[in-house]
């Protein structure tokens, strides 16, 4: 949609090899693309095609064996461990398939967590921002619920709030709806679309080919290579689909 915007992500011919015993697994064999501010990109591909490997590199959790990666204009490949930790803390919001909330911990505390590792933020500001993020995912009334007292959909909303709270340049989601039923998946997808509508840049890795219709751009990987990269001119509304799905019986 907003084509002439600033480049958030630029990957240039990145490769990632894993040594397994004597063999070398080429998980990524030269991937290049650029993602601009305000895009909602889905990444698809069969199992083992390298989606997670790519996302880990984009999320500064891993470094490519070769090739360059620029996040928000900064070259990540030569960064130290601590610098990459800083990037994760300030520039990136991660959403995982299995939520990864801290056990026995309230929604509010879970969302505050990234800000705890940013010493510039006071405890007052931390709290305010966490509350705001939880309100944005419609959990304003569940601030003090513990993670084990919530449903999967609610936990994923908390995880999304946590990814939002540090005001990242990009949100990365790896199979964020993979553990949820169809209806809840669409509720979460609706949330992502709303965030996108408010200007967030999102990369959403998924197995489900249908979800390509709900993003602004779709990248398909096969054997560690990009095989298709298409812009979706007419984005379907996840909310509309959600409303067609039968409500669970009371």
């Amino acid at each position: 949609m907003l084509d002439n915007n600033k480049e958030i992500i630029k990957v240039d011919n990145i490769r990632r090899d894993f040594k397994v015993g004597d063999e070398v697994v080429h998980a990524l064999r030269g991937v290049s693309f650029a993602i601009h501010d305000g895009e909602f990109v889905t990444i698809m591909g069969t199992s083992g095609s390298g989606k997670s490997t790519l996302l880990n590199i984009l999320g500064c959790l891993d470094t490519p064996t070769a090739g360059e990666y620029y996040l928000d204009g900064l070259a990540v490949r030569k960064m130290s461990k601590n610098e990459r930790a800083w990037m994760r803390n300030r520039k990136i919001g991660f959403v995982f398939q299995n939520y990864n909330l801290l056990p026995k911990t309230t929604a509010l505390e879970n969302v505050e967590l990234p800000l705890l590792y940013n010493s510039k933020i006071s405890s007052k500001e931390r709290r305010e921002r966490a509350e705001k993020a939880l309100k944005a995912v419609e959990l304003g009334d569940r601030l003090y619920h513990k993670s084990n007292q919530m449903s999967g959909g609610q936990m994923q909303r908390v995880a999304i709030a946590r990814a939002l709270v540090n005001d990242p340049v990009i949100i990365l989601a790896d199979e964020a709806t993979g553990n949820l039923d169809t209806r809840t998946s669409f509720a979460i997808l609706t949330l992502f679309q709303e965030l996108h509508a408010r200007g967030r840049t999102i990369i959403f890795v998924t197995h489900n080919p249908d979800l390509a219709n709900y993003s602004s751009r779709n990248i398909v990987l096969r054997d560690g290579k990009v095989v298709s990269d298409t812009v979706n001119p007419n984005i379907q509304s996840a909310r509309a689909t959600y409303e067609t799905l039968p409500a669970p019986e009371e």
Binding site: G59, L61, K81, N82, A85, W86, R88, N89, R90, F94, N100, L102, P103, L113, P114, Y117, N118, R162, N166
Partner: peptide
């Protein structure tokens, strides 16, 4: 371990 991984993924440094 998972908690540690999570903390690192949201910006905790090894030192933290």
């Amino acid at each position: 371990t998972r908690e540690i991984g999570l903390r690192m993924s949201i910006g905790a440094k090894g030192r933290d």
